[in-house]
Design a binder for these strands. Sequence first.
DNA 1: GCAACATGCAACCAAACGGTTGCATGTCAA
DNA 2: TTGACATGCAACCGTTTGGTTGCATGTTGC
Lengths: 104, 104
Amino acid sequence: MEAVFKALADKSRRELLDQLHKSNGQTLGELCDYLDMTRQAVTKHLALLESANLVVTVKRGREKLHYLNPLPINEIYMRWIGKFEQQRVQALHNLKQAIEEKNE
Amino acid sequence: MEAVFKALADKSRRELLDQLHKSNGQTLGELCDYLDMTRQAVTKHLALLESANLVVTVKRGREKLHYLNPLPINEIYMRWIGKFEQQRVQALHNLKQAIEEKNE
DNA sequence: GCAACATGCAACCAAACGGTTGCATGTCAA
DNA sequence: TTGACATGCAACCGTTTGGTTGCATGTTGC
């Protein structure tokens, strides 16, 4: 959970997830094309995403294929964001009531 | 957007949001009770949350009241997480296939 | 008015972060 | 087999981050 939030905090890593979203199962080399940094830097980002369980990798010969795992993001939504989301409706309701009361 | 992700990356800040979720409109002093750090550190965290527009503050006399703003989190869900969520089923299918291919 | 209280501001510090360079390892293809 | 290719590993480095301490400012209530 903590790892997922940390992983999502970086723009480059979100970009990588975006690319995998567009085309799943890309190699390290392919993913490097999208980011303006060295391969080693991209490796580090991918390692972090993998340790957060946001991407899963499979080795194929000398290549390493990267697959997106959307479950942790779903988890975050269910356990964390949904809670606040739920309150949003309540907050809007409260606001509506406050305005109505004011108009009386 | 970037600011929101960065703000959510820290456990203490998520804890603060949680506390505001439980009881909205708390003062700095009250929020300090929940975290094991100095008031100044909490101030910094709240400033970051405020600059990410996740909390809104109102001054009342010598106190500062903190209110949760759930809209940015909703934004993240709508623009970012929802996209991955949608793909979830498809991605699981792809992953399953990739693993099967590997086992051959 | 003044003492206690709630918060603000700034300098400082260690650790984590995001990136680099250099080199090693493993795999494919001719 | 050997050279090119895809990736792995480790040391290093500037900047950001999360926290501290010390002091300043504004507000309340007696």
